[in-house]
Design a protein around this nucleic acid. Structure first.
Length: 754
RNA sequence: GCGUCCUUAGCUCAGUGGUAGAGCGCUUCGUUCACAUCGAAGAGGUCAUAGGUUCGAUCCCUAUAGGACGCACCA
């Protein structure tokens, strides 16, 4: 063996060797007789990285954890599929490219036009994809690339259109005119989950609409009061009881408004004056109040964030400016009773940072509170199904505490707005007759919803695209052939023949993936996207498959720097996984992301830690080298005979017993998803037991003993080493594979039996 | 407002109902053959605080303090 472990040479060579073997593909494992065709399946679908850039440490952690599960399952003899892919990440990718183009060419997407702009995005996405693919392989991830998917490729597009069509037919997808979160900067709607609240100071003013109006109200947005159609008070509030039900005409800064006083329990008696001006068109909460009471709404702000109200003071002004003008006018009229500074959470768009303007718009939604007959045959709402999936044990979430967080989110869930006014993404599979398109609120227009375009002339497809999480939500089954190869035959094209009578589970190949690998065994992802993604997959699978999409959810934390800060370009604290892999090895990088971290907790990483595990690699190499140097001809024969030698010394027997005990522990930890514990025990054993104690103790015998003793020593040491390599393999696949093949030429460790 | 997590060695973090662990850092010694990308030896901790349960608590329970976070509200 080489005196020094050449990380880059070995890792590159082993990576090629694995890829050429084809063993990442479970079908080939079956074909080559490595896995029995009726072996228990194990499947993970990779959370697809966004094609917005390159791999970061968070991805590396994800790859390390999943690869541990996958390699362990494969070595246990399971039919193991880990399916890779990438995510088009609609809004994230589009805004990234928009920024680049604006910076380099000073143009926006409208300057380029839809087709040209989309071409630019596709080019960017392709480059990003290629980089991510190379990087992923570099980390040693044993993914089956023959099944690679993309959330925006042809198969997934068909899956998306089919899903939309079916959910529309079930009454779960509807088009409605409702208040949505409008991002004036990105010029699109966004979902509730894409909102980030920022605390800012705001001025709360208490005022009356006019001198004759009997109730004072408080607001931080006086400019929206042109759109008020009611004043709401709490039903138990004695102060206002006499006014409830009365209607008033008021002159608000020169504009006539009509107000009804209503009682609604959502109003807090103790806030402000206890009376709330209801602005149905520009507040989500007010819209809901208005719906409960049958109030009209009056839109006074447009998509650009400008006032549309017929009032000379503010017309065409931006909201922030209008706010000042209205406040000043109220002051002038002597209507303000109080002005105070309060902290306020302002809703901003996650991607663009724009301040959200709630607006009434005609959009597509998924109904979460509507009962429907689901594929499992029961009448439930999506909310109920999502809750039951976890509550009834169909899905176990690790760490368990996230189950409560999940339930809490479901309880507060509103209908999901799925249409976006951006260009990059899945076009909504709805066609309108051209003359009527967008002309009215669905009464007068003819719409066609389908997986394929309608026959005949004059149809034009909805220009909007779908929320990126719509296609991500289908990922656990759209990657496995749904709907084309759905077992129930509900698909277009020729259903695959299953008439050859083969027993269930014995059929291999991608056309049987849905049957073999769905539900996925595990969904492993970051806890930060439990709502965005995990919940949406459960939603989609409940609606379309009638069952859970996966059996278990394992959530990892965020990778932070050694001071606990998020890694970011602006802080300059990014530790790049590829740089680290080149410097210290992918093995060491992986280990640093596993040991010393607990599931669901954030991972604090420093280069020192990675270097520490590089030293461990070196240690392993030197242990192997020492053992290898003491090989004799006799010992070679002994090793070939196997480990059941008759004349085994007491000391050697103890080594083997201890090793067996370790294996029991490590196996239990792996079965319990306690990877950090398994890795730490192995680390401790190899360094402080095998190297420090056992190898030291055997040195004497190897120096002074008889040939027979030398051979016995070598045999035991080699056995201990090989067993250790095997257990370490899921964690440090490269170096273990390399050394294993030096000791056992031609035997690939990756597919050895655990 | 509801809820979660964290507080353990100088730093970053694991862990356990019964003598407290890792990486890095620190001190001393060591380069004759597995390994200086190292070895040997060592210093360093009333496991946040106060109660409780227990034969026994760093671990379980309650409260408090500090820190981080999620959700809702945010007129």
């Amino acid at each position: 063996m080489e005196p020094r472990y050449d990380i880059n040479e070995v890792e590159a060579r082993i990576e090629r060797q694995w890829e050429e073997s084809g063993f990442f593909n479970p079908d080939i494992c079956v074909q080559k007789g490595i896995t029995p065709s009726d072996a228990e399946p194990f499947s993970i679908v990779l959370p697809p990285p966004n094609v917005t850039g390159t791999l970061h440490m968070g991805h590396a952690a994800m790859l390390a954890i999943e690869d541990i599960m996958v390699r362990y399952a494969r070595m246990q003899g399971k039919r193991t599929l880990w399916l890779p892919g990438t995510d088009h990440a609609a809004i994230a990718t589009q805004s990234r490219v928009e920024k680049d183009i604006l910076k380099q060419e000073g143009k926006n997407r409208y300057d380029l036009g839809r087709e040209e702009f989309l071409n630019r995005v596709r080019t960017f996405a392709q480059q990003s994809h290629d980089t991510i693919l190379r990087q992923t392989k570099r980390m040693g991830a044993s993914l089956d690339w023959s099944r690679e998917a993309y959330t925006l490729d042809e198969k997934r597009e068909y899956a998306v259109r089919t899903a939309f069509k079916r959910m529309h037919d079930l009454g779960l997808i509807y088009r409605g005119h409702r208040v949505v979160n409008w991002d004036p900067k990105g010029q699109t709607t966004i979902s509730d989950d894409e909102i980030v609240y920022e605390e800012r100071k705001a001025k709360l003013i208490t005022f009356r609409y006019d001198r004759d109006f009997p109730i004072a109200i408080s607001t931080t947005r006086p400019e929206t009061k042109f759109g008020d159609t009611a004043v709401a008070v709490h039903p138990d509030d004695e102060r206002y009881r006499a006014f409830v039900g009365k209607e008033y005409d008021a002159d608000f800064c020169g504009t006539k408004i009509h107000l009804t006083v209503i009682a609604d329990p959502s109003v807090e008696k103790d806030f402000g004056t206890g009376a709330l001006g209801v602005t149905p068109a520009h507040s989500m909460v007010d819209w809901e109040i208005a719906e409960r009471h049958g109030l009209p709404f009056q839109q006074i702000i447009d998509e650009r964030g400008r006032m549309t109200v017929e009032n000379d003071l503010v017309r065409e002004k931006k909201t922030a400016e209008a706010r000042e003008i209205v406040t000043e006018e109220l002051r002038r009229r002597g209507l303000i009773e109080k002005e105070e500074e309060i902290p306020q959470n302002v809703a901003t768009a996650e991607r663009t940072g724009g301040i959200i303007e709630p607006l009434p718009k005609l959009q597509w939604f998924i109904a979460v509170d509507k009962k429907f007959k689901n594929p499992a045959g029961t009448e439930r709402t999506l909310k109920e199904l999502m809750r039951e999936a976890v509550a009834d044990g169909g899905i176990a979430i690790l760490p368990e505490r996230f189950e409560r967080i999940y339930f809490n989110w479901i309880d507060n869930l509103r209908d999901w707005c799925i249409s976006r006014q951006i260009w990059f993404g899945h076009r909504i599979p709805v066609w309108y007759k051209k003359s009527d398109q967008r002309s009215a609120i669905s009464d007068h227009e003819e719409a066609y919803v389908g997986a394929d375009a309608p026959e005949g002339d004059g149809w034009e497809q909805d220009p909007d695209t779908l929320d990126t999480w719509f296609s991500s939500g289908l990922w656990p089954f759209s990657t496995l052939g749904w709907p084309h190869f759905a077992p129930n035959g509900a698909s277009r094209g020729t259903p695959h023949s299953t008439a050859d009578g083969a027993s269930q589970g014995a059929q291999t190949g991608p056309e049987h993936d849905l049957m073999n690998y769905f539900p996925n065994s595990v969904m492993e992802t970051g806890y930060d996207i439990i709502f965005f993604w995990v919940a949406r997959m459960i939603l989609m699978s409940s609606a379309l498959m009638g069952r859970v999409p996966f059996r278990r959810v394992y959530l990892h934390g965020l990778v932070r720097d050694d001071k606990g800060r998020k890694m970011s370009k602006s802080l300059g604290n990014i530790i790049d996984p590829l740089t680290m892999a080149d410097k210290y090895g992918a093995d060491a990088t992986r280990l640093s992301l596993i040991i010393g971290t607990a599931p669901g907790n954030d991972i604090k990483l420093s280069e020192d830690r990675i270097r520490g595990y590089r030293n461990f690699s070196t240690k392993i190499w030197n242990i192997a080298r020492f053992i290898d140097m003491n090989k004799t001809e006799i010992s070679d024969q002994r090793l070939a005979i196997g480990d059941q030698e008759s004349r085994i010394s007491e000391a050697h027997k103890k080594y083997l017993d201890d090793l067996a005990a370790l294996k029991t522990e490590v196996t239990a930890h792996l079965d319990n998803f306690e990877f950090h514990l398994a890795a730490e025990k192995l680390y401790h054993y190899v360094w402080h037991e095998l190297a420090d104690v056992i190898v030291e103790a055997e040195k004497e015998k190897l120096r002074g003993g008889t040939d027979e003793e030398k051979a016995a020593s070598y045999t035991v040491l080699a056995q201990l080493l090989i067993a250790s390599l095997k257990m370490l393999h899921p964690f440090m696949p490269f170096i273990t594979e390399e050394i294993h093949q030096i000791f056992r030429p031609g035997k690939m460790l990756m597919v050895e039996k655990w």
